[in-house]
Amino acid sequence: MKSVIVLCGGLSTRMGQDKGSMNYHGKPMIVHVLESLNQVADEVVLVLRNEVQYNKYKNLLSKNAFLESSNFKILKDTIKDKGPLGGIYTGISAINSDKALIAPCDSPFISKELVTQLFEISKNYPDFESFVPIWSDGNMEPLHSIYPVRSKEIIEDLLLKDQKNVKALIKRLNVKYIKIDEFDLPKKSFLNLNSPQDISKVE
């Protein structure tokens, strides 16, 4: 079963607004992300940070079929103000499989091919718990990675110690790092749009 958790965090100071709700090519970025994931995932969980964002996104998606799909859930962070790590905790607590791919809501170019390839790799290497794409310079893509449900206990421990960096979780798992150059897809599949300048570069 392919489970995907989409994280929508706080406001972007450079965008001046909630990134997932920002329009790109006529529709919110979150819709671009969900349309790609919905083609290949058996289960999609959208995690939002609070009640205000929850209501905003329910309204934003009201004209789309996602809300009526049985394989789609919208959740609010169960542990507040803990960043992406808190979002991962909320998401993996709600999925029906033993692992999930994490995706950010500000990556409108994430493709069904990327999701398919990541899950295929995870199936071919059952001895590993987590699967993390990595660039040639050593930089990781922790929010385009697969994590096991058992991460929940580790995250609880990290958050109790006020450690909110996803890389702290990665250090506690048996990880297979996947060179991004080995993926047969455009590199912009990993691109996050963090500023108006980012958008202008891909127009």
Rank of each mutant, 00 (worst) to 15 (best):
F109M: 11
F109R: 12
F109Y: 15
I110T: 12
I110Q: 11
I110Y: 09
S111N: 11
K112N: 09
K112L: 03
L114Y: 09
L114N: 08
V115G: 13
V115Q: 04
T116G: 09
Q117E: 15
Q117C: 00
Q117V: 01
L118P: 05
L118A: 05
F119D: 03
F119R: 06
F119A: 02
F119S: 04
E120R: 14
E120T: 14
I121R: 07
I121E: 04
I121S: 00
I121Q: 02
S122R: 08
K123Q: 13
K123F: 06
N124L: 11
N124I: 01
Y125E: 11
Y125H: 15
Y125S: 10
Y125T: 04
Y125W: 05
P126D: 01
D127F: 03
D127A: 09
D127K: 13
F128G: 03
F128H: 15
F128I: 04
F128T: 06
F128C: 08
F128Y: 15
E129Y: 10
E129A: 13
S130C: 10
S130M: 01
S130P: 00
S130H: 01
F131N: 03
V132I: 15
P133Q: 09
P133E: 01
P133N: 01
I134L: 12
I134C: 09
W135F: 14
S136W: 09
D137R: 09
D137Q: 02
D137H: 06
G138S: 08
G138P: 06
N139C: 02
N139W: 08
M140N: 05
M140Q: 14
M140F: 09
M140H: 05
E141S: 14
E141V: 13
P142D: 11
L143P: 01
H144T: 11
H144A: 13
S145G: 06
S145N: 04
S145P: 08
I146C: 00
I146N: 05
Y147R: 06
R150K: 15
R150A: 02
R150C: 05
S151V: 01
S151N: 05
S151W: 06
K152D: 00
E153C: 03
I154N: 02
I155V: 02
E156V: 00
D157C: 04
D157M: 07
L158P: 03
L158Q: 03
L159M: 12
L159K: 02
L160Q: 08
L160H: 03
K161C: 07
K161N: 13
K161Q: 15
D162I: 02
Q163F: 12
Q163W: 06
K164N: 12
K164S: 06
K164D: 09
N165M: 10
K167N: 15
A168L: 02
A168E: 15
A168V: 02
A168G: 06
L169N: 07
I170P: 05
K171C: 03
R172V: 04
L173Y: 08
L173M: 09
L173F: 06
N174W: 01
V175E: 02
V175Q: 06
V175R: 07
V175L: 07
